[in-house]
Simulated scan of single mutants.
Amino acid sequence: MRVIITSHAKKRLRDHRQGSLTIDDIITAAQLIPGSIPTATRFRGFFAKSGRIFDIVAKDIPGGRLVITIIGK
């Protein structure tokens, strides 16, 4: 599945709360979500390779799975 990360989500990677999260962590988390996501939904409790916990907000679009934002814990 193709994962598209918005510029907003990429910008959030530079924030302190999202420290040590990588784009690979986000792509892996988005691909782990089963089924279809017709509306923007928050998914909680993903673990980055660094051990940090984060949430993502994602939605399925015709081009793939759109990651709208990320929220670090």
Rank of each mutant, 00 (worst) to 15 (best):
G51H: 02
A29H: 06
D55L: 01
D24G: 11
M1F: 01
K11S: 15
L13H: 05
K59E: 15
Q18A: 15
K59H: 06
I53T: 14
S7M: 01
M1E: 09
I37Y: 06
T6V: 05
D60Q: 05
I5T: 07
S50N: 08
I68L: 14
I70V: 15
I4V: 10
G64E: 00
P34W: 01
D55F: 02
F46M: 05
D55M: 00
G19A: 14
R65H: 08
F54P: 11
G64Y: 00
I5H: 02
H8S: 10
H8L: 09
A9H: 09
K10L: 15
V67H: 06
I56K: 05
F54H: 02
K11M: 10
A58V: 15
D25G: 08
F54R: 04
D60G: 10
A40H: 09
K49R: 13
P62A: 05
Q18D: 14
K10T: 08
G19T: 09
F47E: 11
D55N: 15
T28S: 14
A58R: 06
D60A: 09
P38K: 12
I53E: 11
L32E: 14
I27K: 15
F43V: 11
G64I: 05
S50Y: 02
A58P: 10
I56M: 08
V57W: 02
L66G: 03
L21R: 08
S7G: 12
S50P: 06
G51Q: 00
A48G: 06
R17S: 09
K10D: 03
K11L: 13
I71E: 13
G63M: 06
G72F: 00
V57E: 13
L66R: 12
D15W: 05
I5E: 03
L66K: 10
I61F: 01
V3S: 04
H16W: 03
R52D: 02
A29C: 09
I68E: 12
T69S: 15
F46N: 06
R42K: 14
M1Q: 06
G19V: 07
G72C: 04
L32F: 02
G45S: 03
I23F: 02
I61S: 00
G63V: 05
R12V: 09
R17P: 01
A48M: 01
F43G: 07
T41K: 14
R52N: 08
R12W: 06
R14Y: 11
K59R: 15
Q31P: 05
T22R: 11
V67S: 04
D25T: 10
F43M: 11
K11C: 04
V67N: 09
I26F: 05
Q31F: 00
S20L: 05
I70Y: 04
P34Q: 08
S20M: 06
P62W: 00
A40D: 12
T22F: 01
Q18G: 13
I5L: 04
R12E: 14
R65S: 09
A48F: 00
R65T: 13
T39L: 12
I61Q: 10
T6C: 01
L13T: 12
F54I: 07
I4P: 02
R17M: 03
L32C: 07
A29S: 10
D25V: 06
I33P: 08
